[in-house]
Design a binder for these strands. Structure first.
Lengths: 160, 160
DNA sequence: GTCGCTGCAAAGTCTTTGCAGAGAG
DNA sequence: CTCTCTGCAAAGACTTTGCAGCGAC
């Protein structure tokens, strides 16, 4: 029941993005594409700052300001193309929304994030909301702990 | 399955706190007690800033600096006397740990937080962690949506 | 051409820290 | 008395905003 890395067609994703921009009278710019592509190429949970660093490495010739990264992530989040995760320390991490909803196990030593999905938990959540007459729009679940490798190896610093 | 407000003896809580301080060579100060008491008297999820405001209202004669609130909340969180919840917007909210673990439904309109507990979900979480050889230290689950009253009434601003 | 977008730097939040005086043990 | 705490203000981390020039359409 572990989702390692759902497949997602980049061309399709890009088309969706362009459509979103068109539909809202927004412009398709190099920076926006680079940000989307970099999120696609790095299917992990990234902070805005780390994403910016990835972009600098992958596209050394093109300057993308951190403000643009924030603005674009905001845009993508509103459009539900990316999701954000905020926990413990300050700051959020973003990931492409792979359509498949999933939850997270977060290693408190190395910051690694393991994704999982359990249909039974999903069902129970619906049930609880219903009992409380709560109209669910979204939900997130995080399990904190120590991942397998940190249980044996010394901890390292994760991206952040 | 809804926990409205678990009972918790303040005297006992205070004793636990004093013991913690004693045990760590820390001092029992007026500010620290006020902070604990205010958390106790307001069994809701509060931001440090809101907690500070509550204190000013309840104890107009005693000055408690916001830095002290942050420092004490940190201390209490390390001692697992309070728990924090971070989501969506920036900032964390704190609550007294009532021993009973519970999860949260968060209204995206009025910021109200409804607590719940489901043993079946707890069990499933354990199971998933075990499957991934993940050693759980803690977990948190949030369901976002619109609460019953906001579904009918206009939204108001919550504490923040 | 128009109007949105971008980078930059400045301004905002929220949180932490340095310090000198206050106060608990 | 000693050594921790506290309030204050300054510093930090992260994020947002104002602006003038740039670039998509």
């Amino acid at each position: 029941m572990l989702l390692t890395n759902a497949t997602l067609d980049y061309a399709k994703l890009l088309e969706e993005f362009k459509e979103l921009l068109r539909h809202n009278g927004l412009k398709y710019t190099t920076q926006r594409e680079i940000i989307l592509k970099t999120l696609y190429d790095n299917s992990e949970h990234v902070t805005p700052e780390f994403l910016n660093k990835l972009i600098q490495e992958a596209y050394p010739d093109i300057k993308v300001g951190i403000a643009t990264v924030y603005r674009t992530l905001s845009l993508l989040e509103d459009a539900q193309i990316v999701t954000s995760l905020s926990f413990g320390a300050q700051g959020k991490k973003y990931e492409l929304d792979r359509q498949h909803h999933h939850d997270h196990m977060i290693c408190t030593m190395c910051s690694k994030i393991i994704e999982f999905f359990d249909p039974e938990i999903e069902r129970l959540q619906e049930e609880i909301a219903q009992k409380n007459r709560f109209r669910i729009s979204d939900h997130s679940m995080q399990i904190y702990g120590i991942c397998e490798s940190c249980q044996t190896n010394p901890p390292k610093r994760g991206n952040h």
